[in-house]
């Protein structure tokens, strides 16, 4: 140890603290609006717009379903998200499976086709789909919203599942077949359990994206109103604290769901470690 190393170390530690502080400030920046959303769900606003703090109240929490259009919008969003997630998860997982376990002509092009929707602004995705529907004279509404949501979800699902199952040992399937399992049994007993965590993660992502989508939906919704569309319209008519209540509920709900999934995966991992001995 030379005599200069002590101040040097002190300076390095100091620099580390500054970095940590900056990191903490950035996290705070990410959180600030979430605090505000939760806080203002307990507000009793003066007038129709919940933008200025007035008084603490539980009114909105006691009567979260007071505004029927808001409830209808939420129901529509949940319906759209369920259907589009179900379809996109199947389509996307199949693509990921094909890309990971087969070598085939055109797989490079497929990879590009999957990435392109993610590198195209939503305005372009939404407006181009609208121009197709206008060309076809299609009726804009529930069906066109679902079509649009499946479109942007397929890429996310395929890429997420592919990232999770890349480099997998597919010889396990052959081993199962050598041991006399039928192909159907192999799919349900070997393939699906192996790729399930990736698929669950992708489905959750797809559901969240669908529930949150505004721009693409705006172009293809006709007269239907989803939850984000309702919130956007609310800035003109009325912005009740019930919107914050729903947003807070979604936050807590998805955190719970995430926690359950993590626990489920840890248990699976433990079972997998115990199983060979059992």
């Amino acid at each position: 140890m030379t005599s200069g190393s002590a101040p040097l170390a002190r300076r390095a530690r100091w620099r580390g603290w500054v970095l940590d502080l900056i990191g903490a400030m950035v996290l705070l920046y990410l959180f600030l609006p979430i605090f505000v959303i939760i806080l203002y769900s307990f507000n009793r606003p003066e007038g129709k717009f919940n933008f200025v703090w007035k008084a603490f109240s539980l009114d909105a929490w006691r009567d979260p379903f007071k505004f029927e259009p808001l409830v209808d919008a939420m129901k529509l969003s949940l319906k759209v998200a369920s259907i589009s997630t179900a379809v996109a998860t199947v389509f996307g997982s199949l693509i990921a499976l094909a890309l990971c376990r087969y070598k085939f002509r055109g797989s490079g092009a497929i990879g590009l086709l999957l990435v392109l929707p993610l590198t195209t602004p939503e305005v372009v995705l939404g407006s181009s789909l609208l121009s197709l529907f206008l060309d076809l004279n299609a009726h804009m509404g529930f069906t066109t919203i679902v079509i649009a949501h499946i479109m942007f979800s397929v890429s996310y699902v395929a890429l997420t599942v592919r990232a999770r199952i890349r480099g997998f040992d597919w010889t396990l399937e052959e081993a199962a077949m050598d041991l006399g399992a039928t192909p159907v049994r192999v799919i349900f007993k070997v393939t699906l359990p192996l790729i399930a965590p990736g698929i669950v993660a992708a489905a959750m992502l797809s559901f969240a994206l669908s529930l949150d989508d505004f721009i693409i939906t705006l172009f293809n919704s006709g007269s239907e109103v989803t939850y984000p569309l309702y919130v956007y319209g609310a800035r003109r008519a009325a912005f009740p604290p019930q919107i914050n209540v729903l947003a807070t509920t979604i936050l807590v709900g998805s955190l719970l769901l995430l926690g359950i999934t993590v626990l489920w995966q840890q248990r699976r991992l433990k079972q997998a470690l115990v199983a060979p001995g059992a």
Binding site: L30, F31, I34, I37, D212, R235, I243, S254
Partner: peptide, 25 residues
């Protein structure tokens, strides 16, 4: 920390932007 960074995704994008409007009022 990774969980904290993706936490904002669990609340609607539009409602978060309205929250900024509230704060910057």
């Amino acid at each position: 920390l990774l969980g904290l960074v993706i936490l904002p995704f669990f609340t609607t994008f539009l409602v978060r932007t309205f929250a900024w409007k509230t704060m910057l009022n």
